[in-house]
């Protein structure tokens, strides 16, 4: 393959509709777990912040799950969710997202200064209203920092799914590798990187917009 150029633009042109499809599939499989993970992490994180004894077991379990090789989990799930289905990818990635987001939610809630919480109580907030109007909003910067990590890692992990037949842009790696043909590999890498960068940028913009009051950039970096 010595004479082969790194990128063959004509191949990209011919396969563009298919690339787009893979990209869309990748986005869905990467983001559904993050959204689902966030929705699940909120109540679990709330419980972990309220009942501290719950926190360590939950995070411990999540860390164990996080440490499992993704490929192994995909393979284990195939009999349940089916070969080459989105669910086979989305379910484990949801757990990975939760492993990052539950601690983020707990850290976010515990980042609410005690004197702020106390003054909310003293002014006559009911517990629910205090949670919704004071504690969760103040937790947002830390949760968003966790969301950035979860999103980027989810985008990169989807590709592994190609080994079990459903990996979004990851398919291009397998395809290029099997055919000793670099163009799809380059396209896959570049698109994955752009996707991750765009998603991260959107979250940073969201953070600036949602929390103009946050001076806690250092705290956010720490949590990330």
């Amino acid at each position: 393959m010595g004479e082969e150029p790194l990128v063959r633009w004509d191949w990209i042109g011919r396969n563009w509709p298919e690339i787009q499809e893979l990209l869309a599939d990748h986005i869905i499989m990467a983001l559904v777990p993050v959204v689902a993970g966030l929705l699940l992490a909120l109540p679990l994180g709330l419980a972990g912040a309220r009942w501290r004894w719950l926190y360590q077991p939950t995070v411990g379990t999540m860390n164990v799950i996080y440490s499992l090789p993704s490929l192994a989990v995909f393979i284990v799930l195939i009999p349940i969710t089916g070969l080459a289905t989105r669910a086979t990818i989305i379910v484990p990635l949801t757990f990975y997202a939760m492993a990052v987001l539950i601690p983020a939610v707990v850290d976010g809630l515990t980042s609410v200064p005690e004197h702020v919480r106390q003054s909310a109580v003293a002014m006559g907030f009911t517990p629910l209203r205090r949670l919704l109007r004071v504690e969760l909003p103040i937790a947002v910067p830390v949760v968003l920092a966790g969301l950035r990590v979860a999103t980027v890692s989810s985008i990169s992990l989807v590709s592994v799914g190609a080994l079990v037949g459903r990996g979004g842009l990851g398919y291009l790696f397998i395809d290029g590798w099997q055919r000793q043909f670099p163009t799809p590999i380059v396209v896959g890498v570049v698109l994955t990187a752009i996707l991750a960068a765009v998603a991260d940028l959107l979250l940073v913009v969201a953070q600036r917009w949602l929390t103009p009051w946050s001076t806690a950039r250092s705290r956010v970096r720490e949590a990330a």
Partner: peptide, 16 residues
Amino acid sequence: RRGIGYVIQQAGLFPH
């Protein structure tokens, strides 16, 4: 509590 004002040392203002 809504009928009793309360002021504490660190002011306890809502940062957001």
